[in-house]
Simulated assay, not measured.
Amino acid sequence: MKRSYFKALLALLAIVGSFNLSSAQEQKTVQKLVKLPLREGGYDSFLALMRINIEQSRKEEGNISFTLFGKDDSYTVYLVERYNSEEAWNNHEESVYARSTEGIAPAATMNMLHETTLNEIAEIPAEATKDVAAEENTQNIIVWFTTKPDTRTAFIEAMSKAILKARNAEGNLGYNIYQNAENANEFIVIERWKNPEVHQTHLQNDYSLQLNKDLEGLLTEDPKFKREVLKNISE
């Protein structure tokens, strides 16, 4: 009887241990936001090569998304990359097309490339962006938020309530928030909307107006001064 009891106990411990090991080995996603101020003369050639990089990278097994944003009146572009693990990211970095893009980057960007590594937030996991036709006039927003050290938790709570509602709003294609891996008080929101009109409607919804109130006193500066309205130029 005792022997059966101990066998059962050992089996249970093995199951628990296996579960804990699996949880410990759970892979973290990798996110990068890259700001690239391009030279006017190198813009077209860099864009053509980057689009090849994007097309091929999206086919990689570990790729979640790969998007390039820009503006009509600027030669600065923003690249947002997501991979499902560090291993997948490293494999991508070794690819021929990624290396080709990096090869011309110093000349095209005047050596002013700025890369931010981003972490997902446990309370607000990132979701996949909905696909739309390339010719649609999507509205894409990147906003930088910096909280005071003692208001970080309140900020995450406020954003969590608003983001869950925004994701269900008409015309929303994606709404994710990330934390700067090197600055726990800095957050980056990436919103994607079907067109400017649905984005304006979103800004007037009750949850957006409430978010504005909830953020009062939590930030070191007004986020409207650290906000970019962009278009998708991946294709």
Results as ranks from 00 to 15, higher is better:
Leu203Cys: 05
Glu123Thr: 04
Ile233Trp: 01
Leu215Phe: 10
Lys231Ser: 15
Phe187Asp: 00
Lys71Asn: 11
Phe69Met: 10
Tyr43Asp: 02
Glu120Ile: 01
Tyr5Trp: 09
Leu218Trp: 01
Asn90His: 13
Tyr178Asn: 00
Asn168Lys: 14
Asn185Pro: 04
Arg227Asn: 12
Ser234Asn: 04
Arg58Pro: 07
Gly17Ser: 07
Val34Tyr: 02
Asp131Phe: 12
Glu120Phe: 06
Pro149Arg: 15
Asn91Ile: 01
Lys59Ile: 03
Ser100Met: 11
Asn180Leu: 06
Leu215Gln: 03
Thr101His: 03
Glu86Ser: 13
Thr76Ala: 07
Lys213Ile: 14
Thr117Ala: 10
Ser65Tyr: 15
Asp131Gly: 07
Met50Arg: 12
Ser74Pro: 06
Asn140Asp: 07
Arg152Phe: 07
Val34Phe: 03
Ala8Pro: 15
Lys59Ala: 11
Gly42Thr: 04
Glu26Leu: 08
Glu136Arg: 12
Phe46Pro: 02
Ile188Met: 13
Ser23Asn: 15
Gly62Met: 00
Ala108Gly: 02
Thr220Val: 09
Lys32Trp: 10
His114Ile: 06
Glu221Met: 09
Tyr83His: 05
Ala11Glu: 12
Ala128Thr: 11
Phe225His: 13
Gln27Phe: 00
Thr109Asn: 06
Met110Gln: 11
Tyr83Met: 04
Gly174Met: 02
Ala181Lys: 05
Glu123Val: 07
Lys71Pro: 06
Lys2Tyr: 11
Thr129His: 10
Gly17Glu: 03
Ile142Ala: 07
Thr146Met: 13
Leu68His: 02
Thr117Ser: 11
Arg39Ala: 14
Trp193Phe: 09
Pro196Gly: 01
Phe155Ser: 04
Glu60Thr: 05
Tyr5Pro: 06
Lys194Met: 08
Ser100Cys: 05
Leu203Pro: 00
Val132Ala: 03
Leu173Pro: 00
Tyr178Glu: 02
Asn183Thr: 06
Leu79Trp: 01
Thr201Tyr: 08
Ser22Thr: 05
Glu93Thr: 06
Ser74Tyr: 02
Asn212Thr: 08
